[in-house]
Simulated scan of single mutants.
Amino acid sequence: MERSRPVEVVPTDGSAAAAHALGERLVSAVAGHGPAVLPTGPDDPPPPAHLTAPVPAGVAAVVTTSGSTGVPKAVLLSGTALAASAASTTARLGGEGRWLLALPAHHVAGVQVLLRSARAGVPAAVMDLRDGFRPDAFAAAVAEARPTVSRLSLVPTQLRRLLDDAGAGLAAVRRFDAVLIGGAAAEAALLDRAREAGVRVVTTYGMSETCGGCVYDGVPLDRVTAEIVDPDPSGVGRIVLGGATIAEGYQGLDDPAFLPGRRFATSDLGRLAPDGRLEVLGRADDVIVTGGEKVPPAVVEKALLEMPGVREACVVGVPDAEWGSRVVAVVAGSGLDPEEVRRQVAPALGRAAPRAVRVLDAVPLRGIGKPDRTAVRDLFDEGSGATRPS
Rank of each mutant, 00 (worst) to 15 (best):
L101Q: 10
A74L: 04
S384A: 13
D217I: 01
A124C: 09
V224L: 04
I181W: 03
A87E: 15
L103N: 10
P260Y: 09
G183Q: 12
D285C: 08
L154Y: 13
A31I: 05
H33L: 10
T245F: 01
A19F: 13
S66V: 07
P35I: 08
I181G: 05
A118K: 15
W323E: 08
P135A: 01
L93D: 10
P308E: 06
R160W: 05
L190K: 07
A87M: 07
C211P: 01
A125P: 14
L100K: 06
L163G: 00
I246L: 05
E227K: 12
P256M: 08
D254A: 14
R174E: 03
A143W: 09
E24I: 09
R119C: 06
S66G: 13
A109M: 11
L100C: 07
H50K: 01
L259R: 12
T290R: 11
D136H: 12
S85G: 09
G67C: 08
F264L: 04
D275H: 03
A186Y: 12
P104Y: 07
V236A: 00
D13C: 03
L269R: 04
A353Y: 14
P338N: 00
D361Q: 15
V331R: 14
S267R: 05
V331D: 10
F176Y: 11
R151K: 12
A53F: 05
I181E: 08
F138A: 00
L51Y: 01
F258N: 00
M127Y: 03
V219H: 02
M307Q: 15
V318M: 02
E293W: 03
P319M: 02
L278I: 03
G14S: 10
V111G: 09
L76D: 06
G95R: 02
L115R: 05
Y216L: 13
A145Q: 08
V179Q: 04
F138K: 03
E339D: 14
A362S: 12
E209H: 07
R262C: 00
P274Y: 10
V7H: 05
